[in-house]
Design a binder for these strands. Structure first.
Lengths: 328, 328
DNA sequence: CTGAAAGCGCTTACAG
DNA sequence: CTGAAAGCGCTTACAG
């Protein structure tokens, strides 16, 4: 059976396609009786509207896009889930576009499929980001610092978070540090590292290259990095700052497997405050970045920009330290 | 600045819109020189195609939809991620549609936004599922047993998995069981429960209502259910079958918090083999359902149906037991 | 309250 | 190799 269109319904109901369209969209002009009859026929004929036809003409899709390159990590699912519920509140749908091509990300964002997009920025290159800035589709960047008339950024203040961790540890008299870095090209990984090191520098403390490990935000990779480090036989640092919780777990996995105790021999601090921090042993000290807030704020802001109520701006979310067993 | 269309490019380039369209889509008829010039102009004018216009006419979108109601749980992210990479292989994009309305799920699936969809079935009601069966857009159900000319199902054989766990425990001489059920309306939760109980019944073993707990696939809920159970002062079972790994962790959390040892006092078995089974203490015995295979098979099958190379059918994936520390 | 008509931005036979 | 024209399925002023 071929696809049923409003034309078919119009014929069946003996009315014009305009009337069918109005009835289907609850435009109030239609006589109640006509409306009912049309809806019944549409249902009986198994009518499903073609969204391409609809969106081509209509100004609004009532859907918000989330553009990303990867679905991995505990962060993404929570972010998307919270965004979804916020969308529901405002009568929007959430579509997630997974792509590793900056070109097709751009087409998705600006191709009139959505009323506005939240962009996990690794999904788009600098040139693409620039292009987004000077046009009219509302857009929010989550890990790139940009703004335009219809483009905003909602970020973690990762530089400040890094400083916060450094200060806390310095206050306890720690002088020998190691750092477990996050993904190379990531805004937050970079800034956590910078803020942390900057603070140490102010206190005339340096971290030797052998004490800068690479954990890629990943538990297994961090675990192996830590293991290799331990095999080298260098002096153990007093504290390790991991760029996120997962890589902090990886650190501790390796440490305990090698007979070290946390926090007695080494303290470890993560970032994110994922749920497992409370299940893990030792319970992990971490920076709560407020990433639950980020998604919600993004949707709220996006809808305000869609409605023309606000312009783009840059918001940075401050984290706060949650002290648990992995430090003392 | 208004939206740039092929019309604008045509004017700028002094050619017709047909030629612009052909150039943009690499249709080989266009003279190389013309094509180049048009592409340059398109780029300079910041042209982005309108996907609604395109898809309205074109037969194929080269995108596959994944329709779901929830993004929670370790299962979803892995599923979606693997599906994505499989899509990439075949030149498709993956769009994830999050919705809690069966109506809008249906519109998404059949509204010509995608070439085919994978449906996490809780996102659609029975009536909607029926309607999907008798039409032409290829569709795969992941936890509903249905088939049609263009509709297939790829499921876990959860009934068999439940039996497998029962058999394993029976073989060790266990006679007193408890069960931690999964979500009420879930295909797999239901069948794991049924298969398990059926096997016990064959051995003349019953589970009293007080020993059927409800964990909703969730760690915290399972933990509380187990805690309440322990407070009642009933005799402790020799083994607990949890409907998934997360709720198994919840069980064990409660047990160890109350001074019981796993597996010495009680054995616990989960389902899924999520990564944490290996990190958790005790390492969890579980059924590996092969959920990594499911997403990949779904995409492969979907594309074959899109290409008209295969019809719908029903595939059930068998699990196998992975024995670790939580049983002996 | 209903219908005829234009048009959204594209693709795709078809003619030249 | 290029262009004129039809049409995909809808919505939306506008006339009646």
């Amino acid at each position: 059976m071929a696809k049923v269109t409003i034309k078919d319904i119009a014929k069946e109901a003996g009315v014009s396609i305009s009337t069918v369209s109005n009835a289907l969209n609850d435009v109030s002009v239609v006589k109640e009786e006509t409306r009912k009859r049309i809806l019944e026929i549409a249902d009986k004929m198994h009518y499903i509207p073609d969204l391409n036809g609809r969106n081509l003409k209509a100004k609004s899709t009532k859907v918000i896009g989330l553009v990303t390159r990867s679905l991995k990590g505990p962060y993404f699912a929570t972010l998307a889930d919270l965004m979804f519920w916020e969308c529901v509140k405002y009568g929007y749908e959430l579509n997630i576009f997974v792509t590793n091509s900056s070109r097709s990300a751009l087409t998705t964002i600006l191709g009139n499929r959505v009323d506005g997009s939240v962009i996990l920025s690794s999904s788009i290159d600098d040139k693409g980001a620039k292009r987004i800035l000077d046009q009219e589709t509302p857009t929010i960047f989550l890990d790139r610092e940009l703004k335009g008339p219809k483009a905003a950024s909602i970020l973690f203040d990762s530089y400040a978070d890094g400083m916060l961790v450094a200060d806390t540890l310095l206050k306890r008299g720690v002088t020998r540090f190691a750092i477990m870095n996050g993904a190379f090209d990531n805004y937050d990984a970079l800034n956590r590292n910078k803020g942390f090191l900057e603070r140490l520098r102010l206190n005339n403390i340096r971290i030797e290259p052998e004490y800068e490990l690479y954990g890629a935000f990943d538990r297994s990779i961090a675990c192996e990095a830590m293991s290799s480090f331990l095999k080298e036989g260098l002096e153990i640092p007093e504290a390790i700052f991991a760029a996120n919780d997962l890589s902090a777990f990886g650190c501790i996995d390796a440490l305990t497997a090698n007979g070290y105790r946390v926090p007695e021999d080494v303290m470890v601090v993560g970032v994110d405050d994922v749920e497992m921090c409370q299940w893990y042993s030792p319970k992990l000290t971490t920076v709560k970045t407020g990433y639950e807030k980020q998604g919600i704020m993004a949707v709220k802001k996006l809808i305000k920009m869609i409605n023309g109520e606000e312009e783009g701006d840059i918001v940075k979310l401050h984290g706060h330290l949650i002290e648990r067993e992995s430090t003392r």
